[in-house]
Write a protein that binds this DNA or RNA. Structure first.
Lengths: 157, 157
DNA sequence: ACAATATGGTCAATCAAGTTGACTATGATA
DNA sequence: TATCATAGTCAACTTGATTGACCATATTGT
């Protein structure tokens, strides 16, 4: 196999590498803190739940998977103590998924870790450049013609 | 569920969104060109194969999956005409996976599409800024302390 | 030289995370 | 109030990975 020439990477590969290395570091650190059963998709779900809970259907639309798959994920996360199913206040068919105390702990830990990582980047390229970077990425994901953000790709965590 | 405030996204989410939207667009366009059976992992494998072929073990290390999983992928890609297994020139145990003509076609198409996308970005934020962006991302994925690029995250395509 | 061990690849069984389809209970509507 | 729609769960299946066993060939140590 040919060696990868890093200085010649296209933008897509660079985005992939930087994103993946961030997510890997995040989950390594979470693992060290005892949250070793949390996968990226779980954090993605937490983002949908925060701050006031969400129904299974809402989560499934957010994650882009079926409601049955969400139900299985919630089974797992409920068993491991991160979320709870609550009865829906107005709709007796529905349930609301909310974070438990442990769920909030992992969310706080995630924020701390990501802040650290972003801080390391600021130390390396300067915080102004990080702001420019964020602004540029924001412009890039904004679909010029359609005037809205791309719908098929969603942030994890 | 709370609405996503796009202007307040952290860097990780921005990287995820921009990466995913790029990959989605790439595969949509490939699909239109008739390469609808190609998944991102396949393109990743092509990158390892180019330009002189690779053994199954090499590919498995590159992709970070088992050699058995690679073998199945190669079965699929061979059946659909993108790669071939060749006998290894010196090691009678081994085989070399190489691209077929159709395999090269999809690689060329991918390059064209990614160039278009990067060009669109240049048109939007300016090509100098795209260069800065690339340089910054490169610095970010370079692990300062260890003096080497992060090993667990690899580019797709 | 050759016995012991390591390596490349495949086969088979299994696992994990998703899917589709069927169903129940409740809600909304003609 | 009869009908249709919706939220959630159960069960069966699909897919892309895994582990373990195996064969053929290479490499190594004595």
């Amino acid at each position: 196999m040919n060696d990868q020439v890093f200085s010649d990477l296209d933008l897509t590969s660079l985005l992939s590498l930087s994103y993946n290395s961030t997510i890997n570091e995040l989950h390594e650190k979470l693992s060290e803190l005892g949250f070793d059963d949390i996968r990226p998709a779980h954090g993605f779900m937490f983002k949908c739940i925060i701050p006031n809970g969400a129904t299974g259907i809402e989560i499934s639309e957010y994650l882009g998977i079926t409601k049955q798959a969400v139900s299985k994920m919630v089974d797992f996360l409920e068993k491991s103590g991160y979320v709870m199913r609550q009865t829906h206040p107005t709709d007796k068919r529905g349930k609301i998924i909310v974070l438990t105390e442990r769920g909030w702990l992992v969310v706080k830990a995630k924020e701390k870790i990501l802040t650290e990582i972003e801080g390391r980047w600021s130390a390396k390229i300067g915080s102004e450049r990080v702001q420019v970077l964020k602004g540029d990425l924001l412009k890039i994901i904004f679909k010029e013609n359609e005037g809205e953000y791309s719908s098929f790709s969603r942030p994890i965590w």
